[in-house]
């Protein structure tokens, strides 16, 4: 169902946002795997999901903030039923369950996780600092990271905006990054991969 709905949305994205996907074949078809993307807009999630193979998408979970997406019943329904949200607690008290536990279990069950390592949408079309919780997950589970750079979604619906405005979007999928080396080295490789993908995207004149 979810796969079919996402495939049916593809022509809509094509017409409204001219979404072009570079390196679609690099998106994982089987888990455990992690897709790490930059995050500027709610549209990021929809574009990423629609880029996956129709069968693989059943297996995809999106890691997102529990305090935001589970706040209202409508949002909760959309997030859990349609998007496939894997809620994560952003603020954790001492002694509570490890917030990464759900993600760890999903990877162990062979799922593909979409994570936004900046942690929040931030300013439109700018990349924030990458958070290192991702590397902890990778080192524990051995799942490869596929970096994805999204350009343009921050103009369509930036944080705080209510009405989407059509703009052309580009999605660039990078080569998988193997889960070896220490955390700092892994973070550096991920940062470099994002920088390379960003440099390959069309120039953006946006102020």
């Amino acid at each position: 169902m979810r796969g079919l709905a996402l495939v049916l949305l593809r022509p809509v994205w094509w017409l409204l946002f001219g979404l072009s996907v570079g390196g679609r074949e690099r998106l994982p078809r089987e888990g455990p795997a992690i897709v790490a993307a930059n995050h500027n807009s709610h549209f990021d999630i929809l574009f990423l999901l629609s880029a996956f193979d129709r069968r693989a998408v059943q297996n995809v979970r999106v890691v997102g903030a529990a305090d935001y997406f589970l706040a209202t019943p409508v949002l909760r329904f959309v997030a859990l039923r349609l998007i496939g949200l894997l809620p994560i607690e952003r603020r954790v008290e001492r002694g509570a369950v490890d917030p990464l536990e759900g993600a760890r279990a999903a990877l162990a069950a062979g799922r593909i996780l979409i994570v936004f390592p900046e942690g929040t949408r931030g300013a439109p079309e700018e990349m924030g600092r990458l958070k290192s919780g991702l590397t902890k997950l990778v080192r524990e589970t051995g799942a490869p990271i596929v970096p994805v750079y999204l350009q343009g979604a921050g103009r369509i619906l930036p944080r705080g905006a209510r009405v989407p405005v059509p703009f052309t979007c580009t999605m660039l999928v990078g080569r998988p990054i193997a889960a070896d080396g220490d955390r700092a080295a892994l973070m550096a490789r991920l940062g470099a991969a994002f920088a390379r993908l960003k440099a390959a995207a069309p120039p953006l004149h946006w102020t």
Binding site: G18, P124, P158, P166, F167, T168, P202, H205, W206, T207
Partner: peptide, 12 residues
């Protein structure tokens, strides 16, 4: 028009 407006400098 979408292609044009995506290419040219725009302000938030």
């Amino acid at each position: 028009l979408r292609e044009y407006l995506s290419l040219v400098p725009t302000r938030r």
